[in-house]
Write a protein that binds this DNA or RNA. Structure first.
Length: 734
DNA sequence: GACCTGCTGCGGTTTG
């Protein structure tokens, strides 16, 4: 066969970056007939082969990140193998999804087989045979979830040091998915514990979507040394974006199925009835009802139904089937999905991305948009916003959904996105990690625990005093117990937690029913609200009738029905709106220009919102009286708004958080101002005291073992912003 | 009205 000339180098990396790759790896690249490596792939070779620096690689989905990491990693491993130097797993790749691991396993197997490096995929669906094989002969590359790695520490702690003795690289896939989350705190701790078990540092390599603050991501990757991480970014060629925000009005009070909703769905149908498209919605119920509504249009048109719902309550099989339909280019296919398809699961390029309703976050909107634009074709995004007809209340007149959407699109175009909270210690996850370390070593001293978990910043911000307080609280709850020698062991409750498989995840989930048909399980639904025999359900894009509920087995049996199903009552918590978005909403109200990406109806809605903003007098005031209630408009994120409510309650005023605003019943503006002035004069309470007043402070899996004092401190740090709230109250009183 | 993610070990039954 003919050999194309090797890919050429760029100025920045020198002409011989490709030459640094192992011969077997070079051969594999030639066989792929790649005419050149992408810039980020070339830039990554030198620092990764050098092995003496951590690397953060940021590029859009399908930007070739996986190869950028594994061409050099495999080169190093292949050379080691030739010198017979390795006796253990040399590279661990931590990934947030099982589907991504399967994907990567397929992609890497061919390259690695070529150079004789074993690749092992390891997660809950992988059989015990493959796992045993790796435990007996540890070597090569391990692709694993944080939860499975956690399980390895807990159930076979004594073997970890041997398995990872030769560890050179820790790769984190989709790093942005971990930032600022419980799972992220766990991941950080696991990386730290891996290096401690190995007895040396490994080069950490993070793969991320392009995010606004890559320095913050670097700091997450190597706490305390983020400024020494090598950052490689491929911002792409600045792909052209075709964007339209479409406005609709619907009278929600009279008929939820009203005419304007149909108008929006009717237009949407015309946009997505052909080609390959993704419609993102903000809830699982909406994914079901929207897919059903679109399917009805298809039925009326007598065309094969191209619409499939996709969300987290559907079984893995049904989801894989939907993904397969979208990938298959021979027939039109449109998937109606929630955030499940934001992460990097490969569904190929799609023609058009649609967002129904306000996007959840700017970062999420960017991820969703990134799915569109095949090759050099422009990315195409439609956003549909439905506001109420005949608005009466200030909230209705302000057209908040549309204005929030405009603010988010503007921020997206400026490359801004929500900053993750990386500073606050995640005490719930620290509880999990304490138990895990005790299981790993069969007990440990308090000092060893502190060194292993908190030193070097795996849990930044946890000082020795806080750690001691935490251990005391855990002792009081039977999570840990102390021997006379001082050795800490899991307590009775701790043992129970450790012995159940649900221990390995850092996040919490509620128990659910499995929805079962004669052909197999379709997915899950909440146990509450209760479902009765005979009820009609819309699920997986079809209608079903419940024939039996088996509470003991946690199963609901269903049979196909002819239609009329309603989506199950999925439970959920709101996604908080960030400070940056709310502050920019105020700018949008104060502005006068009408963005070109608004259709006529959306432009009218924006003008209506701006007019209401001026009429209510919000340009100068942040307070308004309506229908016996005083309304406050802080134009700040949900965290600040929530804190304002707590501060008002602190001085005896009943205040409620309602989206962007605070409502205060039965207190006229003047009296409220007086109370706020006194609060400002007296100065704010200690945030921990303020938190102490909050009835239910539990937010994370193990929060209820923290004890009142630590829980208040944790809540104050994570959920409150007292300085931010005081700034608004000072404006109000001033 | 409101996202997503993950999971061991063992005992039992069935099948070739």
């Amino acid at each position: 066969m003919t050999r194309p000339s090797p890919p050429s180098g760029s100025e920045k990396t020198g002409p011989d970056a490709f030459a640094l790759l192992h011969r077997g790896v070079q051969r594999w690249v030639w066989e792929r007939r790649w005419t050149s490596l992408r810039p980020i792939q070339e830039q990554a070779i030198r620092p990764i082969i050098g092995g003496d620096t951590d690397v953060l690689l940021a590029a859009a989905t399908a930007g070739g990140k996986t190869e950028a990491v594994f061409l050099p990693v495999c080169s190093v491993l292949a050379r080691d193998a030739e010198h017979g130097e390795s006796t253990g797993i040399q590279a661990v790749c931590l990934s947030p999804l099982k589907a991504l691991i399967n994907d990567q396993h397929t992609r890497l197997t061919d390259l690695c087989a070529r150079i004789g490096i074993p690749v092992t995929a390891w997660h809950g669906d992988i059989g015990v045979i493959q796992k045993d094989r790796l435990r007996e002969e540890p070597s090569g590359i391990l692709l694993i979830t944080p939860e499975s790695l956690e399980a390895m520490f807990v159930t076979r702690g004594s073997t970890v040091a041997r398995l990872f003795a030769d560890l050179r690289y820790i790769v984190v896939d989709e790093l942005h998915a971990f930032l600022g989350t419980a799972r992220g705190a766990q991941l950080r701790s696991l990386m730290h514990r891996l290096e401690r078990a190995a007895g040396h540092r490994a080069a950490r390599i993070g793969l991320s979507a392009t995010l606004a603050d890559l320095r913050a991501a670097a700091e997450f990757l190597r706490p305390g040394e983020g400024d020494r991480v090598t950052i490689l970014e491929d911002r792409g060629a600045g792909k052209q974006l075709l964007l339209q925000v479409r406005g609709y009005v619907a009278d929600l009070r009279e008929d939820a199925e009203g005419g304007a909703c149909d108008a929006a769905t009717g237009h949407l149908y015309q946009v997505v009835r052909t080609g390959h498209n993704m419609v993102f919605v903000n809830s699982r119920a909406e994914a079901e009802s929207c897919a059903a509504a679109l399917s009805e249009f298809a039925e009326q048109d007598r065309i094969p139904n191209p619409f499939t719902p996709h969300h987290g309550s559907l079984s893995a099989e049904l989801r894989a089937h939907a993904e397969q339909r979208l990938k298959n280019r021979s027939a039109p296919a449109t998937i109606v999905c929630t955030a499940t398809l934001e992460l990097g699961i490969d569904v190929g390029w799609v023609d058009t991305v649609v967002q129904l309703g306000t996007p959840p976050t700017v970062a999420g909107l960017r991820q969703r948009l990134g799915r569109s634009g095949r090759g050099s074709a422009p990315a195409k995004l439609y956003v549909y916003i439905t506001e109420q007809s005949l608005p009466e209340t200030p909230v209705e007149r302000l057209r908040l959904d549309l204005v929030q959407t405009v603010a988010m699109v503007e921020l997206l175009l400026r490359r801004w996105c929500e900053p993750p909270d990386l500073e606050t210690p995640h005490l719930s996850t620290l509880v999990q990690q304490i138990l895990s370390v005790l299981a790993q070593h069969g007990g440990a001293s308090a000092l060893r625990l502190y060194r292993e978990l908190c030193a070097d910043g795996a849990f930044p911000g946890v000082d020795e005093q806080t750690f001691a307080d935490l251990l005391r609280a855990l002792g009081a709850h039977g999570i840990v117990t102390q021997e006379r020698s001082g050795l800490l062991l899991p307590g009775k409750v701790g043992e129970t937690l450790l012995n159940h498989y649900s221990f390995y995840s850092a996040f919490d989930t509620v128990e659910e029913y499995t929805i079962a048909t004669v052909d197999g399980d379709m997915g899950t639904m909440p146990i509450s609200p209760a479902v009765d025999t005979g009820a009609l359900l819309a699920f997986g894009g079809r209608s079903w009738q419940v024939v039996e509920v088996k509470p003991a087995e946690r199963r609901v049996l269903v049979v196909p029905a002819r239609g009329g199903g309603v989506p199950p009552g999925f439970a959920g918590v709101p996604v908080p709106v960030s400070d940056g978005v709310r502050q920019h909403m105020r700018e949008v109200y104060l502005g006068t220009d009408v963005p070109r990406y608004l259709d006529e109806a959306a432009a009218i809605l924006l003008e209506e919102g701006r007019m209401a903003f001026r009429e209510i007098g919000l340009a100068d005031l942040h307070v308004h009286e309506y229908d016996g209630e005083t309304l406050l408009f802080p134009w700040r994120g949900d965290r600040v708004v929530e804190t304002i409510c707590h501060l008002l309650r602190w001085v005896g005023i009943k205040a409620a958080h309602a989206g962007a605003l605070v409502t205060v019943p039965d207190v006229p503006p003047e009296r409220l101002r007086g109370a706020v002035s006194r609060l400002v004069k007296a100065g704010p309470p200690d945030p921990v005291d303020l938190a102490g007043m909050v009835a239910d402070k539990r937010r994370h899996k193990y929060d209820h073992y923290l004890g009142e004092e630590l829980l208040s401190r944790s809540y104050a740090a994570q959920a409150l912003d007292v300085p931010g709230a005081m700034r608004f109250l000072e404006q109000l009183s001033g």
